[in-house]
């Protein structure tokens, strides 16, 4: 039996969770929310994490009804992510590991998402679409490794949506992507946008420039409403994601899709992916915001698996990496 305490802070979410053999005992989170029109910066995000992490740790242990003594392993996000926030969280994880004399495990953030998704949806060997503000990857397990079959060659899909939300001056609460999704539901008129799929890779920066450049004019002339633009953007970028996922499935003869990452809780994306799956006789596995959005439980769970199979990370290797 392994009780794992997981620390996550690779972006603007700070999460701490306790997982006991695949059972989530607590999964607490604080989000650094910036004013409309602004993104989050490493320095301020790290400060947010530092300001909140001790209270959140206490809360995570209280909710789980676990004392530090009962924790078997400390897990933290090693990367990829923003440097300063990663360091601030890793520092606390390393400190408690030494204070409480516990083994420590550094976890790959992407694998955290995948393992958590597999745990919650009980999917066995899925093709994974991992989509968030910082990552866009199509991943499948092949020859004993998670392998990236396709990914964005520039910005992440979530970043594309978030930055368009800034153009429209949408609120970042609870997240810019969520607010785009709500507007898109009311959009009707489709604006043709660039559609960029290269093999199994995708690209979003050109689409973003295209719509950023034209949006002010289109809105001023009342040709399109903000709702229409959100709708068109979602329809285009999600179609690209579903297409590349389908290509990866055809490539590996897979009949399961696991959707993870913050953008993975977008209902329209789930709907489109589900539609593709049913056309192919495949199954869609998706989770909700508790586990799609960055959280501590996923790091605890993936870390526990790593600890049980590969043992702890040597203390002098408990560094972070942005890549």
């Amino acid at each position: 039996m392994v009780v794992a305490l997981g620390f996550e802070g690779s972006a603007n979410k700070l999460g701490i969770g306790v997982v006991k053999d695949g059972e989530v005992l607590s999964n607490c989170r604080r989000t650094h929310i910036t004013p409309p029109g602004e993104g989050f910066l490493p320095k301020e995000t790290a400060k947010h994490h530092r300001d909140n992490i001790l209270d959140l740790l206490k809360e995570a242990l209280d909710v789980a009804k676990i004392s530090p003594k009962e924790v078997d392993v400390i897990c933290y996000t090693k990367g990829p992510g923003m440097g300063a926030p990663l360091v601030s969280v890793a520092l606390v994880a390393r400190t408690v590991a030494q204070l409480w004399d516990k083994p420590i495990v550094g976890v790959n953030h992407c694998i955290g998402h995948i393992e958590m998704g597999r745990l919650i949806t009980k999917s066995d060997n899925p093709t994974v679409l991992y989509v968030s503000g910082g990552n866009t990857q199509v991943i499948a397990y092949s020859r004993k490794r998670y392998r990236i079959f396709g990914e964005t060659i520039d910005i992440a899909v979530g970043n594309c949506l978030d930055r368009f939300a800034r153009v429209l001056n949408l609120s970042n609460d609870p997240s810019p992507g969520y607010n785009i999704e709500q507007l898109a539901k009311k959009g009707k008129k489709y604006l043709p946008l660039p559609y960029v799929v290269k093999g199994m890779d995708v690209s979003f920066s050109g689409i973003l420039s295209f719509i950023e450049e034209r949006a002010p004019e289109l809105l001023k002339n009342n040709e399109y409403t903000p709702e229409d633009l959100c709708f068109s953007l979602q329809e285009t970028v999600f179609a690209m994601l579903v297409e590349t996922t389908e290509r990866a499935m055809a490539h590996c003869n897979s009949d399961e899709v696991l959707l993870v990452g913050g953008v993975g809780c977008n209902v329209r994306l789930q709907e489109m992916m589900g539609c593709m799956c049913s056309e192919r006789g495949a199954k869609l596995c998706a989770t909700d915001e508790r586990f799609c959005i960055d959280n501590g439980a996923m790091i605890a769970h993936a870390g526990a698996l790593l600890y049980q199979t590969a043992g702890p990370t040597p203390f002098n290797e408990t560094t972070i990496t942005q890549r």
């Binding site: 090693k78 990367g79 990829p80 790959n108 694998i111 990914e151 964005t152 890549r323």
Partner: peptide
Amino acid sequence: QVRARGRKRTMVG
């Protein structure tokens, strides 16, 4: 240059 854009595939956790 294009290879360098592929961003995270070398990272091993």
